[in-house]
Design a protein around this nucleic acid. Structure first.
Lengths: 238, 238
DNA sequence: GCAAAAGTGTTCTTCGTACACCCATGG
DNA sequence: CCATGGGTGTACGAAGAACACTTTTGC
């Protein structure tokens, strides 16, 4: 590295891009914005923007999240995903992007993109099937984000990030079924969720006005990791 | 993001830093280099350097790894860890670093730092106990790297990255014991390692000249994930 | 009462743990 | 033959899968 002064390099920019996931109806959905300017004008892309000189990476990600959801704190979960830095990933200049993964409760707010031409919740499955339709390398970033989300549901209490502050065990189960795309046994899931320490804590309240027996309401527990983990792989009895 | 042109920003540099781990004797060790120039001159730091205009991030990481180990392909494993971008993490200018985690077989080569004043393998435990002694925010990066390595041993066949091309089950077990810092039952570990599909594949050869019964030699299997996972948490019989 | 959803109990099987035991080599 | 480490067999208990069954609501 001696002899390499970055100030003699062509300029580099650092951006933050967001894989913002929620559960919309029965589908895992990702927020896409339509690009208003070149390059990739008119194409759909992940929301994102340049990191400002005075902010760190999580701050930039939270700022983007707030801008896109229109809420100062949309709840849910935000974590760094990975960084992407192919030299030609942006035709304008060298841009290294730090992708963040955000999971938020169902439609956090009507999305009023202040700086994007338009924004929409797109079914993740459809978008993953045609990743090349997204601008830049966002198809690959989205794939990594969805994969990370699927994996982390197994061994962290992250599924609750998709739920409102209070939720039923059945709602939590539907998160798993939607994200993983597999049916789960409601009875075994109930036992598992309520018996895993720190996963959920009962609020005492119950649902009402729904069909069937009212359900206990729960809020997120204090645990940051699930032990034992939930199983994603179905191991059918022989 | 409208109205924010990164070309009007103060310049940003992107570096790649390496958490390079190996097993040295009975200890998990990390490669540290002594800084030859300001800032933090004379202090120990993770190896790293600026990403060049024509290379992508993995290429930069592999270049650093080759430079530090003195081998064009030291074997083992290399993966992106995370990115760090506090505005003041480098007093010279805004530097965003993309950290990579590398796991290589025991002393891959005498380290001849071409551009660092000196390099050494430091016990990870000691270094983690005094993270503030490292330059920049490298103490935190090291902590994240060791944590990642410990976690990934559970559900990936990554432990084999610490072993030479051919190894015995006992060598593999010692990797786990060293990285996790817990003793494992040799007999149960043997069964588990050999029965987990894709973890290790026998070469047919055996060790010789050692004390005790010769051991079968194995090489890395094709699996990228372990199913079922190995257990790190000891669940003692009640 | 009936449908629907919540929640409990029970059985079967799998798998981790502990540990007794046998095997193959060096000295 | 004995010490040392490699490798197998087996009993016990914990936990997951499957599913019968009870509870509590809306209609």
């Amino acid at each position: 590295m001696t002899g390499y002064d970055p100030r003699s390099y062509p300029p580099v920019a650092v951006t933050v891009d967001l894989v913002l996931l929620t559960i919309h109806g029965k589908q895992l959905s990702v927020l896409l914005v339509r690009r208003a300017t070149a390059p990739f004008e008119g194409r759909w892309a992940l929301p994102g923007g340049f990191v400002r000189p005075d902010e760190n990476l999580p701050q930039a990600a939270r700022r983007e999240l707030a801008e896109e959801t229109g809420l100062s704190d949309p709840g849910g979960h935000l974590e760094q995903l990975a960084s992407y830095g192919e030299p030609d990933r942006d035709p304008r200049m060298r841009v290294v992007t730090v992708a963040y993964l955000a999971l938020v409760p169902s439609p956090p707010a009507p999305v009023a993109g202040s700086d994007a031409a338009a924004a929409r919740w797109a079914p993740a499955e459809d978008t993953l099937a045609h990743p090349e339709e997204l601008a830049f390398d966002h198809g690959g970033i989205l794939r990594d984000g969805v994969e990370r989300a699927r994996a982390k549901l197994e061994y962290t209490p992250l599924a609750a990030a998709f739920c409102p502050a209070e939720f039923t065990i059945a709602e939590l189960r539907r998160v798993y079924e939607t994200v993983w795309g597999v049916p789960l046994d409601p009875r075994n899931f109930h036992r598992k969720a309520t018996s895993t320490p720190g996963f959920v804590t009962p609020t005492g309240a119950t649902t009402t006005g729904e069909r069937g027996r009212p359900a206990q309401l729960y809020k997120r527990g204090a645990a940051t990791a699930l032990n034992p983990a939930l199983m994603r792989t179905r191991s059918p009895r022989r």
